[in-house]
Design a binder for these strands. Structure first.
Length: 1110
RNA sequence: GCGCGCAUAGCUCAGUUGGUUAGAGCGUCACAUUGACAUUGUGAAGGUCCGUGGUUCGAAUCCACGUGCGCGCACCA
């Protein structure tokens, strides 16, 4: 073994060995209890950052631990298509400004897909470098076909339940991204902008957005406040809220056009409610407009002038107010004919971020420019009566493009979270209620979902309780396109479970039974003639491709036809057994499905089936790639009547799939591997242009990856059915920043679609920061790339640094120093292994035999052996209970200190004096198993070096019952004695190399038997352990655990006396304190008796020790 | 404005239902260095547990108020 552990020599090979072992694949047929973690899929085009690394470390630890505990563990990997983020990156990657620069949407999608595919391996390989025990055989992608299938299915279900609606709503429009954003995608920025006071008739209203004050509007006052109408020296009349008029300082500061020295005449004072109904026309910067006074308590009487107008089309608050008033009888429907309701919702800004025609002089200007110009116009017209340039407020920005977000009214798709529907399990309910019940619990039931740390429950409820309909449509291209088609009348058509008919021509070309008999006959003359006939028949058709299996006869037939027509042949062996008549009229995907079903019926399910399906899929992909070239002609033989008959006669494919799914021999994934929702092949239908919010597909992740919507899928049955409370998966571990984006929505869709909440525990890790707790950012330059750290120090240290010393929900401070510290630990473990190897090696040859150690016999165990075995038992139990409680930090800390501070510092040192190789090997083996979940690489490497080539993860997690409290107590005394002698030696500045003599005054057998050990550890020349140990002439004295210890040390008599005096003082103080406590009757009466007894014992010991010193 | 969280050694943080002398890592200081361990060992120093008051036999821990920092939300026209 090398002197130092080199992770670069180990990690790649070890991971490869794990992958090749096949052990990473979870077995859905296993009888073991399942344990499932869905991996939060990182952005497929992204780079691994420390947040990912923390997530991977925590989940891997749980996964490995549960596997060693005997669970059938599935940690399911995948990547996310990250709609908006990826679309922006693709545009930038091609050096373009917008997606419109591509010739077509399809072209853009091709480029985007190529980009995502190219980037995919990068992030996957980075995930592997963390040592992640992921089941790559089940890797999924949020934008692959099975996930698209699931997305389309739930969309259809939700739509049919009335929970998805399309409608005009006020949405957040990102002018830069040209797309709607959800409320959660906004980033708020604090800005200072001028606040304008504008004259509106006699009223004065305030706004930061003067450019929007260009249209007819209701003018809102507070109903319960008094308003003062006054006249200035120029004879102009104004109305402001009385509070403002009375507060002269504020009054003149606000309305800074007024002269504080001038006299103002109050004409009248009116209550706000009495102003209601007043109609007037007034000058705006854009010309004369109509206003109508209404009263509403949204007016804050402490702020501004006490009046405002609204832009219902461009402000969420105004929109809500207008919506409320639209229905209110007070508005008299259309404000008495004066102001039609449509005037409430005038569009002043268009989707490019420019002013519309209503803005008159600034029409066509950008909002920013219009704000400046309208301000100037107001000033010119004398309408600007005040301006506060120090006004601060928050504006929404697009979280991706950091550009301005304008509230706009636009047609979008929504999920109705408060609409009642009937759920199979929960009866009449709403999505919101179901989300609440997940964490709060249904009536008389415990909550199904537990959030760690618990305080996030509050955050969750605050969000859910205020939840509004979820806008799911996005005006981008990279994403799941909304599976809805419109006809010319704008009626909505949902996709049906049927596909385009394209293969409609074919003829049998041979003896269909030959293959059944195992004979692959050459093509007969008749067959050749038939093939020539086919050419003639097909000449008039637009044939694009010939498809055939691989039998000699079919291949020859296909070649003849293809040559005759000048088209290509595609070989798909898996389709060899079709009769062309039977596939005629079927879609490619249906053909695939039926082929798979048939294969399964004949050969059963197994690994071969997976291979078959995969090859079939590849063949069908080839077919799809060329189908646009023309019709497809199958050249095959042999039919599968039993299945196809149903298809032909019944015509209802869902029927046959129902039958299929009840057959337990049939495979998972057959239906799911191909989308069943396709555009209806009717020329006049037009698909919705929008795509779905990226979180829509993410929200299905825990079950769409396991075969849903096929509820019979074995993966779903095995792994979406956890052992704890029968909910979906077990743990969802992620950052708290996406609790709402993602976790809440998985809960929503999970309950809706699967009748289960998708996990029972939500573990929220904190944000990774630099070692000073500061957020990592590019601008600060304090970012750390986990891959660099893995390169330099290894994956194990990075994992330890991320999990030890951090608690859920709190930030995770990390820096190179912390990682370096754990690198040292990993190396320590390596060297401990090396030491054990050397100890067990043949002294002549240096060779040792590898074997997995078993528990050593209880005979002939020294005190040290008993102690380490006892401590090992205790630590294993502690680590286990910490991990069960998801307290990984404590588990790691316990291991760290046990391995370094106890096993290496004491047991290995003792082993140099009194070796017991069996115990040594056994304890090390158990330590490696114990540490494996946290440090998979070093433990595997050490395991291989000393014990076996097997995978250490296949071992059971250690659980021992060799506790021996008496041995622990006795050994602790040994440790204390050694420590005390070392301290004395250091205090006297003695060279640690120099051997000295010492004595311990005691008769206890275990100390006598440990005297060689003490001698070695404390580097003593001589040690006398006896009840009457002779005190050396020049000796320092100290007391340990009520034992007198003499150390023969050259010393200064005065200094020694002072030291003893100090010890005595400390003891006296302690005694006084203990006595004080014991003499307090309320303590002896009320404190637990055990505690009082302990205090008494301490007092006695301290008194005894003091006596010995005197 | 409302809400949540945090405040413990020079730094970053643990600290269970209140219970001996409040802990760890890093850093600092001293000594050692042919060793399983260049990545090591031994020892030491270092704390008004943010402040004030309260509950209690007993408070870092529970309560109230205050101070400072961080975060979230918000009908700020």
């Amino acid at each position: 073994m090398e002197k130092a552990y080199n992770h670069l020599n180990s990690e790649a090979d070890i991971y490869k060995a794990w992958e090749e072992s096949g052990a990473m694949r979870a077995d859905e047929t296993s009888n073991k209890p399942p344990f499932t973690i869905p991996l939060p899929p990182p952005n497929v085009t992204g780079e691994l950052h420390l947040g990912h690394a923390a997530m991977l470390a925590i989940q891997d630890i749980l996964t490995r631990y549960k596997k060693m505990q005997g669970h059938e563990v599935l940690w399911l990997p995948g990547t996310d298509h990250a709609a908006i983020a990826t679309e922006n990156v693709v545009i930038k990657h091609h050096g373009k400004q917008s997606r419109e620069e591509w010739p077509s949407r399809e072209d853009f999608m091709v480029d985007a897909k190529a980009f995502a595919d190219e980037k995919h391996d990068n992030i996957v390989n980075q995930m592997k470098r963390m040592g992640s025990w992921l089941d790559w055989s089940r890797e999924a992608y949020t934008f692959d076909e099975p996930r698209n299938f699931a997305v389309n299915r739930i969309f259809k279900d939700l739509y049919q339940d009335g929970l998805i609606e399309r409608g005009y709503r006020l949405i957040n429009w990102s002018v830069g991204a040209q797309s709607v954003l959800s409320d959660d995608e906004l980033e708020w920025d604090e800005v200072k902008e001028p606040f304008f006071y504008i004259k509106c008739g006699k009223f004065i209203m305030g706004t930061v957005r003067p450019e929007t004050k260009c249209a007819n509007s209701p003018l809102i006052v507070h109903p319960d406040e008094d308003y003062v109408e006054f006249e200035n020296s120029a004879g102009e009349n104004f109305i402001v809220i009385k509070r403002l008029y009375d507060d002269k300082e504020k009054f003149f500061k606000t309305l800074n056009f007024l002269d504080a020295d001038a006299d103002y005449k109050v004409l009248k004072t009116t209550k706000g409610s009495d102003l209601v109904g007043e109609k007037f026309s007034a000058e705006t910067y854009a010309g004369m407009r109509d206003f109508y006074v209404i009263a509403d308590t949204v007016i804050d009487p402490e702020k501004g002038s006490g009046a405002m107008t609204i832009s219902a089309s461009h402000s969420a608050d105004d929109y809500n107010l207008a919506k409320r008033w639209e229905k209110s009888p007070l508005s008299k429907g259309d404000l008495g004919g004066f102001m039609p309701p449509k005037d409430w919702f005038i569009q002043k800004i268009d989707f490019a971020g420019n002013m519309t025609e209503v803005a008159g002089p600034v029409a066509g200007f950008s909002v920013k420019k219009a704000r400046n110009v309208s301000g100037k116009l107001l000033e010119e017209k004398g309408l600007l009566v005040g301006k506060d340039i120090n006004y601060e407020h928050r504006v929404p920005l697009c979280y991706r493009s950091s550009c301005v977000v304008e509230p706009m009214i636009s047609p979008q798709w929504f999920i109705m979270v408060e609409k009642e529907y009937t759920h199979a399990l929960d009866g009449k309910t709403t999505l919101k209620r179901q989300m609440q019940a997940a964490v709060r619990g249904f009536e008389n039931e415990d909550p199904a979902v537990q959030i760690i740390p618990e305080r996030f429950n509050k955050e969750y409820f605050r969000w859910i309780d205020n939840l509004q309909d979820w806008c799911i449509s996005r005006q981008i291209w990279w994403g799941h396109r909304i599976p809805v088609w419109y006809d010319e009348q704008q009626n909505i058509h949902l996709a049906e479970e049927q596909e385009i008919i394209f293969a409609r021509h074919g003829e049998s070309v041979g003896n269909r039974d030959s293959k059944v008999q195992g004979v692959d006959d050459p093509l007969t003359d008749k067959g050749r003639a038939h093939a020539q006939e086919m050419i003639e028949v097909l000449k008039s058709e637009n044939v694009g491709v010939i498809v055939t299996g691989t039998s000699a006869r079919n291949t020859e037939t296909a070649d003849i036809i293809a040559n005759g027509l000048g088209v290509k042949v595609v070989h798909i062996e898996e389709l060899s057994s079709y009769d062309t008549k039977d596939v005629a009229g079927m879609s490619i995907d249906d053909i695939g499905r039926v082929a798979a079903i048939k294969y399964c019926k004949e050969n059963g399910k197994g690994e071969d089936f997976d291979v078959f399906v995969e090859r079939l899929r590849i063949g069908l992909e080839k077919l799809k790639a060329v189908r646009s070239k023309g019709k497809i002609v199958f050249v095959t033989n042999r039919s599968i009547y039993s299945v196809l008959q149903v298809l032909r006669d019944g015509g209802d494919t869902s029927d046959i799939f129902e039958k299929r799914s009840k057959n337990s021999h049939l495979p998972h994934g057959v239906i799911d591997r191909w989308p069943i929702f396709q555009a209806p092949d009717l020329p006049n239908l037009r698909q919705d242009e929008d795509t779905l919010d990226t979180w829509f597909s993410s929200a299905l992740w825990p079950f769409s990856t396991l075969g849903w919507p096929n509820n019979e899928a074995p993966d779903l049955q095995k792994f979406y059915n956890n052992a704890v409370n029968g909910q979906g998966t077990d743990v969802l571990e992620t950052g708290w920043d996406i609790l709402f984006f993602w976790v809440a929505r998985m809960i929503m869709f999970g309950r809706y679609a699967t009748n289960k909440f998708p996990f029972h525990t939500v573990y929220l890790h904190g944000m990774v920061t630099d070692e000073h707790g500061k957020k990592m950012s590019k601008s600060k330059g304090n970012g750390i790339n986990p891959i660099d750290m893995i390169e330099e120090y290894g994956a194990d240290p990075v994992r330890l640094a991320l999990v030890i010393g951090s608690t859920p929900g709190q930030k995770i401070p990390i820096g190179p120093n912390k990682i370096k510290g754990y690198r040292n630990f990993v190396n320590k473990m390596w060297n401990a292994t090396r030491f054990v190897g050397l100890q067990s090696a043949d002294s002549e040859t240096g060779a040792y035999e590898r074997s997995v150690p078993t528990q050593p016999s209880a005979d002939n165990l020294s005190l040290t052996d008993q102690w380490i075995l006892s401590r090992l038992s205790t630590v294993c139990a502690e680590v286990k209970s910490s991990l069960e409680a998801y307290d990984i930090s404590t588990a790691g800390d316990k291991i760290y200190h046990f391995v370094w501070g106890e096993f290496c510092d004491w047991y290995l040192e003792a082993a140099k004096v009194e070796p017991n190789i069996d115990v040594l090997r056994y304890v090390l083996a158990e330590i490696l198993k114990l540490t494996h979940p946290l440090c998979p690489f070093i433990t595997q490497q050490c395991w291989q070096e000393l014990f076996s080539d097997s995978l250490i993860i296949e071992e059971s997690f250690p659980s021992l019952s060799l506790e021996n409290p008496e041995a622990v107590k006795q050994f602790t005394t040994v440790q204390n004695i050694v420590g005390a002698i070392r301290t004395l030696r250091a205090e006297k500045n003695l060279n640690p190399k120099d051997k000295i003599a010492a004595g311990i005054k005691t008769d206890e057998a275990h100390l006598k038997s440990a005297s060689d050990l003490v001698k070695a550890l404390a580097n003593l020349s001589d040690l006398e352990v006896a009840a009457q140990a002779i005190t050396p002439e020049h000796s320092a004295t100290t007391i340990v655990d009520n034992l007198e210890i003499f150390v023969d040390i050259p010393f200064d008599a005065d200094a020694e006396a002072a030291r003893i005096e100090k010890l005595k003082t400390e003891l006296s103080q302690k005694i006084a304190g203990l006595k004080g406590r014991l003499s307090n009757p309320s303590y002896t009466e009320k404190a637990p008796p055990k505690l009082v007894a302990e205090t008494q014992a301490q007092l006695e010991q301290a008194e005894s020790e003091l006596q010995k010193l005197s």
